[in-house]
Amino acid sequence: MNFFRSTWSIALYTWREGIRKKTLLGFLILSILVIFGSTFMTAFMAAPQRAVDLGESTVEADVQSKLIKDICVSAITIFGVLITIFISASVVPQEMDNKVIYTVLSKPVSRFQYLLGKFAGVQLIVLVNLLLMTLLFFAALWIRESVIPTLILWSALLTYFQFLIVSAFTFAISCTSTSSVLPTIGGLFIYITGNLTEYLNDVSARVSESTNAVDYYIGMLAYGLYRMLPNLRDFDLKDQILHLAPNDPPADAMIPQLLLAGSVYALAGYVLAYVLFRRREL
């Protein structure tokens, strides 16, 4: 009971402190402006499509709808990942800087509990922000298309697991750092690399036929990284949102497997954070 009370207390404190960060608020406001703005912007962009002789109004509406979806999904992903990285990178280093960590860890709170509370607080922030942005997009699309866009909800779920993976590893890096700069760079690196793992597979396949020893080792390395790193692209339903009907179920997406993979990667990130932080001198 005490374990959960203390951990929840740290999580709630992290959340209350986190939502007051100006940078985070800035990202959130910007994303909301983009989502709102996209719906107004498309109203002025239909003219060139009039030349298409395929039932004018249908094509126009389709292009507009795709544009809105493209802008909104991109905004949610970009601002969401920035918020995730920024908050995951800063919660622990900031507490070391302002010495709150000393007052907390001198209480009967283990380092495991402390990290769990901080990580849970970060997830609360990420979730609330993602929900806000998704709800706005969901409402805009619902009003526009007159159908409940359930695909957006599937996309939000997978996007959260994508953020969870990035957050866990950024958090782990932050546990070795006294400032949030290095973990922020690390988080961006993880996100970018996680979206490029297919290229690693390509590299591995291309050099596998080479007889050159250097190529062979590069191929092995690329293949190893491909197998080890999370493929964040798998969590992205943007193409389906653009091309399917808003109320279609996700096609070909192995959602349970992705959720399991996301959870395993997040757990690995958290365990790494604990291993790095367990004997860290504060």
């Binding site: 009971m1 005490n2 009370r5 203390s6 207390s9 740290i10 404190y13 209350r16 402190e17 007051r20 302002n98 010495k99 709150v100 000393y102 007052t103 907390v104 001198s106 209480k107 009967p108 709170v109």
Partner: peptide, 30 residues
């Protein structure tokens, strides 16, 4: 539980009331 520590120049969250800060730390004691 038997040790209380007051660090030098520590920060106490200024968006909380005095008693809320104590409530937060009290919860850490379970």
């Amino acid at each position: 539980r038997k040790i209380g520590y007051v660090p030098e120049g520590a920060y106490y969250p200024d968006f909380l009331r005095g008693e809320e800060v104590l409530r937060f730390y009290g919860q850490l004691y379970g």
